[in-house]
Protein backbone atom coordinates (compact mmCIF):
# COMPACT_ATOMS: atom_id res chain seq x y z
CA UNK A 1 0.00 0.00 0.00
CA UNK A 2 3.09 2.12 0.12
CA UNK A 3 2.45 3.03 -3.48
CA UNK A 4 0.17 5.86 -2.45
CA UNK A 5 3.36 7.78 -1.80
CA UNK A 6 4.61 7.20 -5.33
CA UNK A 7 4.13 9.46 -8.30
CA UNK A 8 3.07 6.45 -10.38
CA UNK A 9 -0.02 5.90 -8.23
CA UNK A 10 -1.14 9.49 -8.45
CA UNK A 11 -0.39 9.66 -12.17
CA UNK A 12 -2.56 6.64 -12.71
CA UNK A 13 -5.42 7.42 -10.33
CA UNK A 14 -5.12 11.08 -9.39
CA UNK A 15 -7.45 12.46 -12.05
CA UNK A 16 -9.96 9.70 -11.40
CA UNK A 17 -9.95 10.34 -7.65
CA UNK A 18 -10.46 14.04 -8.23
CA UNK A 19 -13.33 13.43 -10.66
CA UNK A 20 -15.12 11.05 -8.32
CA UNK A 21 -14.43 13.29 -5.33
CA UNK A 22 -16.24 16.08 -7.19
CA UNK A 23 -19.07 13.66 -8.01
CA UNK A 24 -19.41 12.80 -4.32
CA UNK A 25 -19.46 16.48 -3.41
CA UNK A 26 -22.05 17.26 -6.07
CA UNK A 27 -24.28 14.33 -5.07
CA UNK A 28 -24.04 15.26 -1.40
CA UNK A 29 -24.49 18.99 -1.91
CA UNK A 30 -27.34 18.89 -4.39
CA UNK A 31 -29.16 16.12 -2.50
CA UNK A 32 -28.84 18.04 0.78
CA UNK A 33 -30.33 21.18 -0.76
CA UNK A 34 -33.29 19.35 -2.29
CA UNK A 35 -33.81 17.14 0.75
CA UNK A 36 -34.04 20.27 2.91
CA UNK A 37 -36.46 21.88 0.48
CA UNK A 38 -38.77 18.94 1.20
CA UNK A 39 -37.76 17.97 4.74
CA UNK A 40 -37.75 21.42 6.32
CA UNK A 41 -41.38 22.26 5.47
CA UNK A 42 -42.43 18.75 6.53
CA UNK A 43 -40.66 19.16 9.87
CA UNK A 44 -42.34 22.53 10.38
CA UNK A 45 -45.69 20.98 9.47
CA UNK A 46 -45.16 18.22 12.05
CA UNK A 47 -44.48 20.76 14.80
CA UNK A 48 -47.37 23.04 13.88
CA UNK A 49 -49.95 20.27 13.62
CA UNK A 50 -48.89 18.40 16.76
CA UNK A 51 -51.41 18.23 19.61
CA UNK A 52 -49.71 21.08 21.45
CA UNK A 53 -48.68 22.88 18.28
CA UNK A 54 -50.11 26.22 17.23
CA UNK A 55 -52.28 24.64 14.51
CA UNK A 56 -53.18 21.22 15.93
CA UNK A 57 -54.46 18.83 13.28
CA UNK A 58 -54.24 15.24 14.37
CA UNK A 59 -55.13 13.57 11.08
CA UNK A 60 -52.71 15.58 8.97
CA UNK A 61 -50.02 15.12 11.60
CA UNK A 62 -50.51 11.36 11.61
CA UNK A 63 -50.52 11.07 7.82
CA UNK A 64 -47.31 13.07 7.48
CA UNK A 65 -45.77 11.17 10.37
CA UNK A 66 -46.68 7.86 8.78
CA UNK A 67 -45.21 8.79 5.39
CA UNK A 68 -42.00 9.90 7.08
CA UNK A 69 -41.78 6.67 9.03
CA UNK A 70 -42.23 4.61 5.88
CA UNK A 71 -39.47 6.60 4.18
CA UNK A 72 -37.21 6.13 7.15
CA UNK A 73 -37.83 2.44 7.60
CA UNK A 74 -36.55 1.47 4.14
CA UNK A 75 -32.81 0.83 3.99
CA UNK A 76 -31.28 3.18 1.44
CA UNK A 77 -30.18 0.52 -1.00
CA UNK A 78 -33.66 -1.06 -1.07
CA UNK A 79 -35.31 2.32 -1.53
CA UNK A 80 -32.89 3.13 -4.31
CA UNK A 81 -33.67 0.10 -6.42
CA UNK A 82 -37.39 0.18 -5.69
CA UNK A 83 -37.87 3.73 -6.97
CA UNK A 84 -35.68 3.40 -10.06
CA UNK A 85 -38.58 3.94 -12.44
CA UNK A 86 -39.55 7.05 -10.57
CA UNK A 87 -35.93 8.20 -10.73
CA UNK A 88 -35.87 7.74 -14.48
CA UNK A 89 -39.11 9.68 -14.78
CA UNK A 90 -37.65 12.63 -12.89
CA UNK A 91 -34.09 12.88 -14.21
CA UNK A 92 -34.20 10.64 -17.25
CA UNK A 93 -31.67 8.10 -16.00
CA UNK A 94 -31.36 5.45 -13.33
CA UNK A 95 -27.60 5.63 -12.96
CA UNK A 96 -24.77 8.07 -12.47
CA UNK A 97 -24.69 11.15 -10.31
CA UNK A 98 -28.07 12.32 -11.57
CA UNK A 99 -29.66 8.95 -10.96
CA UNK A 100 -28.35 8.91 -7.40
CA UNK A 101 -29.66 12.31 -6.41
CA UNK A 102 -33.33 11.34 -6.63
CA UNK A 103 -33.17 8.39 -4.19
CA UNK A 104 -30.79 10.36 -1.96
CA UNK A 105 -33.36 13.15 -1.69
CA UNK A 106 -36.25 10.74 -1.18
CA UNK A 107 -34.35 8.94 1.53
CA UNK A 108 -32.91 11.98 3.31
CA UNK A 109 -36.00 14.21 3.29
CA UNK A 110 -37.93 12.20 5.94
CA UNK A 111 -34.79 11.98 8.04
CA UNK A 112 -34.36 15.74 7.79
CA UNK A 113 -38.03 16.31 8.63
CA UNK A 114 -37.48 14.49 11.94
CA UNK A 115 -34.27 16.42 12.61
CA UNK A 116 -36.06 19.72 11.99
CA UNK A 117 -38.98 18.61 14.15
CA UNK A 118 -36.62 17.87 17.04
CA UNK A 119 -34.83 21.20 16.67
CA UNK A 120 -38.03 23.23 16.58
CA UNK A 121 -39.46 21.34 19.54
CA UNK A 122 -36.57 22.72 21.60
CA UNK A 123 -37.90 26.26 21.20
CA UNK A 124 -39.45 27.32 24.49
CA UNK A 125 -43.24 27.00 24.31
CA UNK A 126 -43.47 30.21 26.36
CA UNK A 127 -41.74 32.18 23.60
CA UNK A 128 -44.24 30.85 21.08
CA UNK A 129 -47.07 31.79 23.40
CA UNK A 130 -45.59 35.28 23.80
CA UNK A 131 -45.52 35.70 20.03
CA UNK A 132 -49.15 34.57 19.84
CA UNK A 133 -50.07 37.03 22.57
CA UNK A 134 -48.57 39.79 20.42
CA UNK A 135 -50.78 38.85 17.50
CA UNK A 136 -48.25 36.96 15.37
CA UNK A 137 -49.70 34.92 12.51
CA UNK A 138 -48.73 31.28 12.01
CA UNK A 139 -46.39 32.25 9.20
CA UNK A 140 -44.76 34.95 11.34
CA UNK A 141 -44.29 32.51 14.21
CA UNK A 142 -42.54 30.04 11.90
CA UNK A 143 -40.46 32.64 10.11
CA UNK A 144 -39.63 35.00 12.96
CA UNK A 145 -39.68 32.75 16.01
CA UNK A 146 -39.34 29.02 15.34
CA UNK A 147 -36.64 29.13 12.66
CA UNK A 148 -34.43 31.92 14.08
CA UNK A 149 -34.68 30.64 17.64
CA UNK A 150 -33.86 27.08 16.56
CA UNK A 151 -31.08 28.14 14.19
CA UNK A 152 -28.12 26.84 16.23
CA UNK A 153 -29.82 23.48 16.62
CA UNK A 154 -30.90 23.39 12.97
CA UNK A 155 -27.30 23.97 11.91
CA UNK A 156 -26.08 21.11 14.07
CA UNK A 157 -28.82 18.94 12.60
CA UNK A 158 -27.69 19.98 9.14
CA UNK A 159 -24.21 18.58 9.76
CA UNK A 160 -25.74 15.25 10.75
CA UNK A 161 -27.90 15.28 7.63
CA UNK A 162 -24.98 16.05 5.32
CA UNK A 163 -22.86 13.31 6.85
CA UNK A 164 -25.71 10.84 6.52
CA UNK A 165 -26.18 11.76 2.87
CA UNK A 166 -22.44 11.47 2.30
CA UNK A 167 -22.59 7.93 3.67
CA UNK A 168 -25.55 7.15 1.39
CA UNK A 169 -23.60 8.34 -1.67
CA UNK A 170 -21.07 5.61 -0.98
CA UNK A 171 -23.86 3.04 -0.94
CA UNK A 172 -25.23 4.52 -4.14
CA UNK A 173 -21.78 3.90 -5.62
CA UNK A 174 -22.49 0.19 -5.34
CA UNK A 175 -25.20 0.49 -7.95
CA UNK A 176 -23.43 2.67 -10.43
CA UNK A 177 -23.82 6.16 -9.04
CA UNK A 178 -20.17 7.13 -9.29
CA UNK A 179 -18.34 8.98 -6.57
CA UNK A 180 -15.80 7.83 -4.00
CA UNK A 181 -17.91 4.88 -2.89
CA UNK A 182 -17.97 3.63 -6.45
CA UNK A 183 -14.16 3.88 -6.62
CA UNK A 184 -13.77 2.02 -3.37
CA UNK A 185 -15.90 -0.82 -4.64
CA UNK A 186 -14.69 -1.03 -8.23
CA UNK A 187 -10.99 -0.58 -7.56
CA UNK A 188 -10.58 -1.35 -3.89
CA UNK A 189 -12.78 -4.43 -3.83
CA UNK A 190 -13.25 -5.79 -7.35
CA UNK A 191 -9.72 -5.09 -8.62
CA UNK A 192 -7.97 -5.47 -5.28
CA UNK A 193 -6.25 -2.08 -5.48
CA UNK A 194 -5.88 -1.74 -1.73
CA UNK A 195 -4.32 1.71 -1.97
CA UNK A 196 -7.41 3.02 -3.68
CA UNK A 197 -9.55 1.76 -0.82
CA UNK A 198 -7.26 3.42 1.67
CA UNK A 199 -7.29 6.77 -0.13
CA UNK A 200 -11.08 6.88 -0.41
CA UNK A 201 -11.41 6.00 3.26
CA UNK A 202 -9.01 8.76 4.25
CA UNK A 203 -10.86 11.29 2.11
CA UNK A 204 -14.25 10.29 3.55
CA UNK A 205 -12.96 10.43 7.12
CA UNK A 206 -11.44 13.87 6.55
CA UNK A 207 -14.65 15.11 4.90
CA UNK A 208 -16.75 14.03 7.87
CA UNK A 209 -14.34 15.63 10.34
CA UNK A 210 -14.30 18.90 8.40
CA UNK A 211 -18.07 19.06 7.97
CA UNK A 212 -18.65 18.32 11.64
CA UNK A 213 -16.21 20.85 12.99
CA UNK A 214 -17.24 23.63 10.60
CA UNK A 215 -20.92 23.24 11.47
CA UNK A 216 -20.31 22.83 15.21
CA UNK A 217 -18.28 26.01 15.25
CA UNK A 218 -20.85 27.84 13.20
CA UNK A 219 -23.64 26.71 15.51
CA UNK A 220 -21.76 27.83 18.61
CA UNK A 221 -20.71 31.14 17.13
CA UNK A 222 -24.25 32.21 16.20
CA UNK A 223 -25.91 30.99 19.40
CA UNK A 224 -26.63 34.09 21.46
CA UNK A 225 -27.70 32.03 24.46
CA UNK A 226 -24.07 31.22 25.14
CA UNK A 227 -22.77 34.75 25.61
Amino acid sequence: MADIFTAAFWNQYGALLWKEFIHTMVMTGVSTVFAYLIGLPLGVLLVLTADHGIRPHRILNQIVGWIINVGRSLPFIILMISIMDFTKLIVGTKIGVKGAIVPLVVSAAPFIARMVETSLAEVDAGVIEAAQSMGASTFQIVWKVYLPEAKPSLILGCSISIITILAYTAIAGAVGAGGLGDLAIRYGYNRRVASMLLVTIVILVLLVQIIQSVFSRLSTSIDKRLK
Binding site: G126, E149, K151, P152
Partner: peptide, 21 residues
Amino acid sequence: LRLARRNVTMIFQSFNLLMQR
Protein backbone atom coordinates in the same frame (compact mmCIF):
# COMPACT_ATOMS: atom_id res chain seq x y z
CA LEU B 1 -58.12 38.61 17.10
CA ARG B 2 -54.50 39.13 16.07
CA LEU B 3 -55.17 42.85 15.75
CA ALA B 4 -57.02 42.94 19.07
CA ARG B 5 -54.07 41.28 20.80
CA ARG B 6 -51.89 44.28 20.04
CA ASN B 7 -54.18 46.15 22.37
CA VAL B 8 -54.00 43.60 25.20
CA THR B 9 -50.38 42.57 25.63
CA MET B 10 -48.85 40.26 28.15
CA ILE B 11 -45.76 39.64 30.26
CA PHE B 12 -44.86 36.27 31.73
CA GLN B 13 -43.22 34.60 34.69
CA SER B 14 -40.44 33.21 32.51
CA PHE B 15 -40.09 36.46 30.50
CA ASN B 16 -40.29 34.61 27.19
CA LEU B 17 -37.82 36.78 25.33
CA LEU B 18 -36.45 35.74 21.97
CA MET B 19 -33.03 34.45 22.94
CA GLN B 20 -31.40 34.96 19.55
CA ARG B 21 -32.36 38.63 19.33
